[in-house]
Nucleic acid binder design. Structure first.
Length: 571
RNA sequence: GGCCCGUUCGUCUAGGGGUUAGGACGCAAGAUUUUCAUUCUUGUAGCAGGGGUUCGAAUCCCCUACGGGCUACCA
């Protein structure tokens, strides 16, 4: 029975095995594939293929039965969600959906000092706008809750205690002031103070104090933290699904605080405990976490969870369009593009930060742009629907280096999506703006107008600037065009034309064009001399679709009126 | 300072020992449109530097430079 299953698995393997990495020692083959039972990822050395294929089925069988792909997006509610955060959520979402798994939203609010009201709702609303709807999490239900770490507070202590009991962690009583002064001192000597295996024996902790004293300090309620006791001289080697082999030596790592004196766990403990309890199979997060990966691996090991611990992958950061460093709120303000998905009002300063939604981006354009920032399908395809992204997504095709954000390309994506939309749909979105301006238009006519101008727009908000003359007479005329095209006899010619237009009975673009051409021929006037001036009179500038279509849509009497006004004003 | 990660056109990227180094954005030119935009065509521009290994290196190795991350009782 088991054998039969293996046959299927091997078939799957042949189909999906595709990724080859090389590193300094030998070549490895990596396989990742999903089946009805779940997702599996593993590696083996080329030379050992026969041996491995003989040995591995059982291991694989166990893993497959146990693990359904589960990933989480775990932001901290310290402010609006950055577009880099949205991209992290997106990649998690794509990965989950690709492998038929679950995408969870967990709110990491273990730092009460940095809590910003409204941030959590903002995160949820942002994900919804982007279409990245979690299967479980804060605001979405699920069986592994609560999904807000502050509400899980009571659960963490036992794991910290377990670590202490088993010698993986210890109590530390050093005050913030003491540590700060040690840091200052080290800085003065051009060193950096680190609470680690070199210094912990000279500090106030349960490693240096007698058991009695430790007990007494605990009983008198003295403030303490629990620190991880980083083991000595161990090489932690891990295959990051994006970056390949990454290695660390524990001698370089410090004893991180796991449990704070306020009774809350730090990110490291809470993260590992929750990922374990929520059965997370793949941790996909930003590069800023790469350095703490060895700590997390060691935590899984110390807690006895190595067998089921997740795979790690660290996403590159999004960098500023110009200059140094990662993309920040300031860049957006300075260069005029949004950094956040939605408009955000800072609850403290009242300051606004623009959002992609409010700036007129379509969520699908925003997502498409974000997906291509640091990932590509390996083909030349650039436009992807969310379904296509899910189908094509693969962590191994995520680029390792940071990507500079290009606002121009973001606009280009939006333009593309706008052009793809039907005039009807765009007209619907345009209507509220017209109503606001007190303009009433017949739906059919509006759709026709939109169809004429949508290709010249980048955003829905451009619809007005490209079509206002269909609804309202121009209030001014473009100076350059006047200079170039408005000659001494232009006014007179236009009045003659106005009189002629009055005589047209069927006010249709085609008919007008036909009769107009005949009229021009009879007068022996060149088109060039009058076309632009007429356009100027109707539109106010030298832009817009075919002039005869404008004539038709603006209406006979209104056209004549506008020509007369222009002639009067431009005398 | 220490540790870790990275580096192909201005930007996003493909390519992973033999390629005229491919595509996209941007920019420029041309065509179409007697306007402007769209669209189409063409052009523009790149393997960070230095050593190795090799018949042959953008590709593998080492060094340097540069960029980034971390180095909090922040995440």
């Amino acid at each position: 029975m088991v054998e039969k299953k293996h046959a299927n698995i091997f078939k799957c393997l042949e189909l999906k095995g595709k990724q080859r990495y090389s590193n300094s020692e030998m070549q490895f083959f990596f396989f990742s594939f999903s089946s009805a039972e779940g997702y599996f990822y593993f590696q083996f050395p080329t030379s050992d293929f026969k041996l491995f294929s003989y040995l591995w089925p059982e291991i694989l069988f166990v893993k497959i039965m146990e693990r359904r792909v589960r990933v989480r997006f775990a932001p901290s509610p310290t402010g609006p969600l950055h577009m880099g955060g949205v991209r992290t959520a997106l990649f998690n979402y794509l990965f989950a959906k690709k492998h038929g798994g679950d995408f969870l939203l967990r709110i990491e609010d273990t730092d009460q000092n940095r809590y910003v009201p409204g941030a959590e709702d903002y995160i949820i609303e942002s994900l919804k706008w982007c279409g990245l709807v979690p299967d479980e999490g804060v605001g979405f239900g699920g069986e592994y809750g609560p999904y807000r770490q502050s509400e899980r507070k009571v659960m963490y202590k036992q794991y910290a205690d377990f670590l202490i009991e088993n010698g993986f962690a210890y109590y530390a009583f050093d005050t913030a002031e003491e540590l700060n002064s040690l840091r200052k001192e080290a800085e003065a000597n051009k060193h950096v103070f680190s609470y680690d295996l070199h210094t912990r024996n000279n500090l106030k902790n349960s490693l240096t104090l007698s058991p009695e004293e430790v007990l007494e300090r605990l009983q008198t309620g003295e403030h303490y933290v629990i620190r991880f006791k980083m083991p000595e001289n161990r090489d932690i080697i891990e295959e990051d699904l994006i970056r390949g082999r990454v290695s660390f030596n524990t001698n370089q790592l410090d004893d991180k605080v796991l449990f704070k004196s306020d009774g809350m766990p730090t990110y490291h403990l809470a993260n590992v405990v929750d990922d374990h309890l929520m059965k997370i199979t793949h941790v996909i997060r930003g590069e800023e976490w790469l350095s703490s990966m060895p700590l997390h691996i060691l935590l899984y090991e110390s807690l006895g969870w190595s067998e089921t611990r997740p795979y790690f992958s660290h996403l590159p950061l999004i960098l500023k369009p110009e200059g140094k460093g990662k993309l920040s709120k300031r860049d957006g303000d300075k260069m005029g593009f949004p950094v956040f998905p939605l408009l955000w009002k800072d609850p403290e300063t009242g300051e606004y930060s623009r959002g992609y939604r409010e700036d007129g981006y379509f969520p699908e354009a925003f997502i498409n742009m974000l997906a291509l920032l640091g990932w590509n399908s390996g083909t030349e395809q650039e436009f992807f629907s969310i379904e296509e992204l899910i189908e094509a997504f693969d962590l191994s095709r995520v680029v390792k280096s940071g990507a500079r954000f290009d606002p121009e390309k973001a606009k280009w994506f939006n333009r593309h999506y706008l052009h793809q939309k039907s005039a009807l749909e765009l007209a619907e979105q345009f209507k509220p703006e017209l109503v606001d301006k007190g303009i009433e238009v017949d739906g059919n006519k509006l759709e026709i107008i939109v169809s004429k101008i949508k290709d010249r727009c980048e955003f829905v908000k451009d619809l007005w600037s490209q079509s206002h003359y269909f609804f309202v007479a121009p209030e001014s005329y473009d100076e350059k065009t006047i200079k170039a095209k408005w000659k001494a006899d232009t006014g007179e010619k236009l009045l003659t034309i106005a009189t002629f237009l009055e005589t047209i009975e069927e006010w249709k673009a085609e008919t007008i064009k036909e009769l107009f051409s005949a009229f021009m021929a009879s007068k022996e006037w060149g088109f060039g001399a009058v076309m632009v001036p007429i356009r100027l009179a109707l539109v106010g500038a030298s832009t817009g679709p075919d002039l005869f279509e404008i004539l038709e849509l603006v209406g006979q009497q209104e056209c004549i009126r506008r020509i007369e006004i222009a002639v009067e004003l431009l005398k």
